[in-house]
Amino acid sequence: MINITINGLAVSVENGSTILEAARFLGFPIPTLCHHEGLTPYGACRLCVVEIGEGPGARLVSSCTYPVEEGLKVRTASERVVRARRMIIELLLASCPQSKVIQDLASAHGVRTQRFKQEYEDCVLCGLCVRMCSEQMMAGAIGFRGRGEERSIGTPFDVQSEVCRFCGGCMHVCPACQLRCTYNQPEKAVCNACANLAPPCIEKEQYGDMMCYMNPCVACEIK
């Protein structure tokens, strides 16, 4: 066991756990976006920031990737943490405002304005889908491509993947396209992200046909 202090409370937590796991176990809420219990931590979204250390040495780290260490002092809701968190949410809103997950985060954390250039990305590069596909579905059909501004998610060479199982796992975990993809009964949950009066997906017979990565419907390419 490792002795740490979370928000002033001295606790001992299991060796090898992350700050996030320890905090959640003890009931301190930390919002996350790219974290998923069944997948390896990735540290992409930085939403789970907490402050560690004291005085001038205090710094922000992503709690989902930071393992607990003896004597660690953690603050999960200091002013600095809250400010950083809200800034991250604001940036997420700037890139992907149509995401229900991000909208909910904004509302829960009182982010009402968005001061950056508005974009409508359909991906926040959280990597959940990639990890889902390779770690849980054992398919490895999709991955990150490119770097920097050109970084994107998809199949190699942008052609239909031969190893995709059409399980829908990637879309299930996606915070950005969840709305348009979490169903296999389109008539019950038409997302209408395409703003199409007659969404083409309703016509589709097979679930597989709606796999956004494999056969993107033209209408899905909302910009």
Partner: peptide, 27 residues
């Protein structure tokens, strides 16, 4: 070449998505 990347994936046991990711990451 695409064929080479497919071979590398097959022979190293990594997914093609991983190899493609590496190949497109580095300039």
């Amino acid at each position: 070449p695409e064929e080479a990347l497919r071979l590398v994936a097959r022979e190293t046991g990594r997914s093609l998505a991983d190899i493609y990711g590496v190949a497109t990451f580095y300039k």
